[in-house]
Amino acid sequence: MTDLLDALTKLLLFPGFAFLFACAMLFAWIDRRVIARLQGRVGPPWFQPLADWIKLMAKEDILPTGTNGWVCAALPVLSLAAVLTASIYIPVGGWIAQAFEGDLIVVLFLLSLPPLAYFLGGWATGGVYSVIGGNRSLLQYFSYEVPFLMALCSPAILAGSWSIAEIAARQSETIWGVLVQPLGFILALVGLIGKLKRVPFDIPKAKSEIVAGPLTEFSGRKLALWHLSIEVKTVVGIFLLVNAFLGGSGVSGLLPAPITFAIKSLLVLLILSVASVLYARLRIDQLANLGWRVLAPLALLQITVTVWIGVA
């Protein structure tokens, strides 16, 4: 009985749904506030992302005629479920719900489901903007995913384990991944920006070109779930990077584990927000160029160096 209660607590409260929801809202607020301040504006109050989400949930939910209502309802749920499941294996401030050897691969696989759902969402709703957005999102996926995966393999090779908790623990004992593999960290960050479709890689949802990309025809509750899944993916992605490169919630001796983890996560979030402010949006062919001509070779270089050092 206690096992069941324990599992439910972990899934629904901490570090499960409730915690991630709260984190998603908090990170979204910090992101918008930082961007606003850098642009010379004030920015929204702390409850804005929550208020927006609640309002969206209450709005009318319509779809174009001829679209399959079940498919369109299932896709945002699939996207959200994938990121929430991925969070089970990622240690947060020292706590973890579940861990096993190889869970890094499972997490990376689960994090690649939302882009697929996004693309299908575009094609399921039809419409010119959605289809073009869907095509672009797939092209973008192929450009950033390979460098991202390779960059995240490097800490695993370094730690000699494919479990995220193991990687984080090793790094907090010895030395942080970012200091040994700075290139890997940068590539993982760039890959994360692509995954989260933030500027300069917000090409699939380029507002001035294709309105809202694949999500153009979604509204109401479905759109609220899409937005929530994107925000939770931001949180999960940041947590993953903190564990893989910044030593997780390693006890630094100065501060308790949760605080160190929080500080590291906010640092990564700050980097993402500043990157949003500094650049214009790239074109899809420019991104493909960047991904395959610059990022992928660099990631390959990073892995080669890691293996070589490991062997030596």
């Binding site: 001035s208 500094l278 214009a280 949006r281």
Partner: peptide, 16 residues
Amino acid sequence: LGENIGFQTIFMYAWR
């Protein structure tokens, strides 16, 4: 122009 190429920062600065 900034807004339309996704460079919102220029938009905010220019209009300010």
